[in-house]
Amino acid sequence: MDKVKKDGIKGSFLKYLFVCFVVCVIGNWLIYGVFDYLQKWYVSRYIVLPIPDFFSLDDIRLWESIPDDMWLYDVLRYGRYITVSLWSIFCIWFTVKKFYAAEVKKPIDTLMAASDRILHDDLDFEICTECKNEIGRLCVSFENMRKNLYASNYELWKSLEERKRLNSAFSHDLRTPITVLKGYTELVKKFDGRISPEKQADILSKMSIQVERLEHYTEKMSSVHKLEDIIPEEEAVAYEELCGSFDEVGKLVCGDEFFSMSAKEASGAVICNDRELIMQVFENMVSNAERYRKSVVKCIAEIEDDSLRVTVTDDGNGFSEEALRKAWQPFYRDENENEAEHFGLGLYICRLLCRKCGGELYISNAENGGGKVTAEFSVKKSESR
């Protein structure tokens, strides 16, 4: 049968017909032999007239010299032709049935089942067939079409997921700059016109810087199709200036009495990296610490081995064992997380941006309890990394 399946439908059908012909001829010979034997047996038992070899019983009957009770002989005589016809029809029917079952039915059923699943948007299956004829090759073509359709749908789904992740990250990262701007606004309202012109100009200048950062970040996020497409824009930033920005943003997010900043001395140090991305990572770290703190959030900055290391700790409950393993995953939220505004993207974005800036992000629990997040950034130009 395997040899038959390697041929086309026409060749296979001819082989089936050949087998049918052989079986049909042999069967007809046997039928003729059986009926001839029964007729001779009947004649030898019931016919007493001597019949010459060159006469048949039918010729003798013409003389009306034998008994009229010849119905069994007639049944055997005409039954032979009827049986031969029925046997031939049966052989043809059986051959067509076997041919259809072996060469046509299986692949047709496979194609019908596959088309039904595709119609219901189910592409996660495989079209398999053992037939090697034209319909079998049609199944192979159908399988290739399914694979291409599956790959196309997967790419489309992946693109939509990336866009969803990018939009969620954009929404997530907008919260901290807006919080900083709200902090400056509340500071102005708190003093109700009692701020000196110099202080007022300073606050307006800082608010302008935040608005500019927000504008640049919006343009950068709008120009990429996924987070992995972000390209750092390097600039030289003084270490002391960057630490001052850390202290200012930390106090605005957490409050003066809940945030403390310390920076190890590195006089004249300059950091060549994307200041905007570094600040975005820091703001995410501080926002997460603010969410889980009990009383205080601490930040330590230092430059060591051509890397800027920024560590933010809080005095909360710290990371669970599961969070230490899965906190990097996008949209991960601890089972005890009840905040609807928490997207579960903070650490994922921080780690991605750190790597874009030639560094890495580490999470752990502090020795005295609470969470500890350390971000590293390269301080050298990208050509020397």
Rank of each mutant, 00 (worst) to 15 (best):
C91T: 04
D68W: 14
V75G: 03
W41C: 09
D74Q: 04
T110C: 04
C20T: 15
D58S: 07
F21K: 08
L38H: 03
V48Q: 11
S44F: 07
I89W: 04
I92C: 06
W87H: 06
E103S: 03
I108Q: 05
L57F: 14
V43W: 13
Y32A: 07
Y32S: 00
K40Q: 13
D69Y: 00
W87D: 13
G27N: 01
E64I: 09
E64Y: 04
D74T: 01
L62K: 07
V84F: 01
F54H: 04
L57D: 01
V22D: 07
V22A: 10
W29A: 14
Y32M: 11
L49A: 13
W87P: 02
T110V: 03
V96I: 15
R61N: 14
R77L: 09
D59M: 11
D53G: 00
R61P: 06
I92E: 08
I51A: 00
L49M: 01
R77Y: 09
K98D: 06
W71N: 01
L49T: 04
L62R: 05
D74R: 11
W93L: 14
I66Q: 01
Y46A: 03
L57N: 11
Y73D: 07
I31M: 12
I26P: 01
I66R: 00
T95N: 00
P107R: 11
G79T: 00
D53N: 09
W29E: 14
W93Y: 11
D59A: 10
D58L: 08
P67N: 15
Y78N: 02
V48M: 03
F54S: 09
S65K: 13
P52M: 01
D58A: 02
D59Y: 10
Y46L: 12
R80H: 01
I66N: 07
D69Q: 07
I108P: 08
R80N: 03
S56N: 10
Q39W: 00
A101M: 02
L49W: 09
D53V: 06
N28C: 15
S44E: 12
F90K: 02
F21P: 03
L111S: 02
E103L: 08
T110W: 07
L57R: 13
V34G: 06
L62N: 04
F35Q: 00
D53E: 14
G27R: 02
D68K: 12
V104W: 00
Y100P: 10
Y42C: 12
W87Q: 05
K98M: 07
I82M: 03
D109L: 14
S56F: 04
W29P: 02
D58T: 10
G79D: 05
L76E: 01
